[in-house]
């Protein structure tokens, strides 16, 4: 029991379970899943479906944060990627041409990876603090996206493109498979090669890592590049789902949800140890919370306030210091004989 409680995923799992139990008590229908036209429908499927773009962004963010960095530009990269993909398709004679769709996707992904590399370049070579370096692209990125779309919302009519964000494969949304694939890729890349060790080492102690011969510049460049790539992929899913690119609103505030998911998952903003599974749980918690708020009919005005309160509670419960303080104040309220008992047992 003690070992389970000490496991780094204990608290995220507990919070997720608590949220689900709340829903079970409030409305058992929350868990109902229906099959219609070879597709699964239900709140749980919605959580997975809406959570997948966030999961993609958060996976990339995890690696960046592990190197003691942060990437505020992911939301803007989402918008740029969406704009490039939709713009390319909209210029085609046949918008449904598979070749054209593939070109559009590759262009968007390449551009996103390049933007990530640019962030990494600013951080590692120019030496700008990550929060400032990526703030630059966060601000200008929205402008770039609008330049690409000429300030309009580009709409495309391309069933082949729409498959990515709205299609179904074996009962589940295609985007869920994409997120799962990238998660597996990231896990393999970091745990089956030495990359994970290098990232944690660089994030934990950059000086010592350099003296141990780890190429910290390359490691950090990769993290930012991968993060940009993930954000680009999320942008494609989001724009494909609505068949349009909105430079202003696509991926708006994604960076904040992604950072939140990483932190809830147990990765420290100070860098070092990172937990991809934790991040995934963080994403599920955030998405479950959103869905719960909608399905319980909380008025939209207080929606964000409720979310903020729950997130605050989640963060506090993860802090050992807070738990200890809480436990102490609870204990002191109890009758005194119980405290004596507690003392005896600890002595034994």
């Amino acid at each position: 029991m003690e070992r389970i409680r000490k496991h780094h995923l204990f608290w995220p799992v507990l919070v997720l379970v608590a949220l689900l139990v709340f829903n079970l008590l409030y409305d058992p229908d929350f868990f109902r899943i229906q099959v219609r036209d070879g597709k699964l429908y239900g709140n749980l499927i919605d959580i997975l479906f809406f959570g997948s773009p966030l999961a993609l962004v958060a996976i990339g963010m995890t690696l960046v944060i592990a190197t003691r960095g942060i990437d505020l530009s992911v939301g803007s990269v989402v918008a740029i990627s969406a704009a490039i993909a939709c713009f390319t398709i909209s210029k085609g004679a046949d918008q449904n041409d598979p070749g054209l769709v593939a070109t559009a996707i590759l262009l968007a992904l390449a551009a996103s990876a390049l933007l990530g590399l640019w962030n990494g370049f600013l951080v590692t070579r120019v030496g700008i603090q990550p929060i400032v370096a990526t703030l630059i692209l966060m601000v200008t990125g929205r402008g770039i996206a609008q330049l690409i779309t000429s300030g309009q919302i580009i709409t495309v009519i391309s069933p082949n493109y729409k498959v990515i964000g709205a299609g179904t494969l074996l009962w589940l949304p295609v985007s869920v498979y994409i997120a799962a694939l990238v998660f597996a890729l990231a896990a393999l890349l970091t745990r089956k090669t030495a990359l994970g060790l290098f990232i944690e080492s660089v994030g934990c102690n950059p000086t010592a890592s350099r003296l141990a011969g780890i190429r910290s510049v390359t490691v950090r460049l990769f993290a930012y590049l991968f993060c940009g790539f993930c954000a680009g992929l999320a942008g494609i899913i989001l724009s494909s789902n609505v068949s349009s690119a909105d430079g202003n609103n696509a991926g708006l505030w994604y960076e904040l949800d992604a950072i939140l998911a990483v932190v809830i998952g147990g990765t420290s903003l100070n860098g070092g140890r990172f937990f991809l599974t934790g991040t995934l749980l963080g994403v599920l918690i955030i998405q479950t919370l959103t869905t719960t708020i909608y399905s319980t009919g909380v008025p939209p005005e207080v929606n964000l306030v409720v979310k903020a309160l729950v997130v605050l509670a989640v963060c506090l419960i993860q802090s050992e210091g807070f738990r200890r303080t809480l436990a102490r104040s609870l204990v002191s309220v109890r009758p005194s004989h119980q405290r004596v008992e507690g003392k005896v047992t600890t002595r034994g």
């Binding site: 030495a194 290098f198 000086t207 010592a208 003296l211």
Partner: peptide
């Protein structure tokens, strides 16, 4: 500050340079 990578395990610290 320049030697151990303090949060990582003894094993990871030992193999760091070789792996690098």
């Amino acid at each position: 500050t320049e030697g151990i990578i303090d949060e990582l395990s003894v094993r990871e610290n030992i193999i760091a340079a070789l792996q690098a």
